[in-house]
């Protein structure tokens, strides 16, 4: 069921071909699996292992190192409230308490209707805009408790569904390289000469 779909296998093959070693594609492919199902299933990890030529145990080993990967279903919207220093100085704890009360779950929990998972997050690189949060990795900055209430309302009513995709969808834009423009990945052992433009002359 949760092996990659045919169309995602095509995307996966395109991604794999860009690397001199297939295993390098693993993290992008894990994101692809999470995009398809909202989390990463065992079947998906077996499938990815087949695609890049490693065991499913190796896929599992890599996947479990990274915090963004989930191995069971979570809420449609993952609300990550930053709690690192700059946000803490600007009142992120109050924001988290408010979110816990409003959603009726503790940090780490998922609401009964499966809409929201609330999580404490580490620094999200928006420190001058503290306190900040991300919903499915889309930013909200200088968030007040009233902002948070409005955000939850808007997510519930589907008002933000264009801007904020469901959990699992990260970048909505994929890289495309036209075959006539692509140089192509070459395994390192097959290259033993310096690039042609290193000939002491200008390239243009």
């Amino acid at each position: 069921m949760s092996r990659l779909s045919d169309s995602n296998v095509a995307v996966a093959k395109e991604i794999i071909a860009r690397y001199p070693r297939q295993k390098s594609a693993l993290i992008p492919l894990l994101h692809l699996a999470q995009e398809q199902t909202g989390y990463i299933s065992r079947e998906a990890m077996v499938h990815l292992g087949e695609l890049v030529g490693v065991t499913s145990a190796e896929v599992y080993g890599t996947a479990t190192f990274y915090e963004m990967f989930r191995f069971e279903p979570i809420g449609k919207y993952l609300v990550n409230i930053c709690g690192t220093m700059s946000c803490a100085l600007m009142g992120s704890e109050k924001l988290m308490h408010h979110a816990e009360k409003r959603l009726g779950v503790k940090a780490g929990g998922t609401t009964a209707d499966g809409m929201f998972t609330l999580a404490h997050a580490e620094c999200q690189a928006a420190c001058t805009e503290a306190p900040c949060l991300q919903v499915n990795y889309r930013f909200r900055l200088r968030v007040t408790t009233a902002d948070l209430d409005n955000l939850i309302d808007d997510l519930k009513t589907g008002k933000l569904s264009d801007e904020i995709p469901v959990h699992g969808v990260l970048s909505k834009v994929r890289q495309h390289i036209a075959p006539d423009r692509e140089v192509g990945a070459v395994a390192p052992e097959l290259v033993n000469e310096s690039p042609v433009w290193l000939n002491g002359k200008a390239a243009l």
Binding site: P28, A178, V183
Partner: peptide
């Protein structure tokens, strides 16, 4: 890529390179 700034024979020169977008997971 489409405008010829990345990939094969950039700006018509003998300089060619791919830039591959990669991303982490936390």
């Amino acid at each position: 890529y489409a405008a010829g700034y990345i990939g094969k024979n950039i700006l018509g020169s003998n300089f060619s390179i791919d830039i591959i977008l990669h991303w982490g997971a936390g």
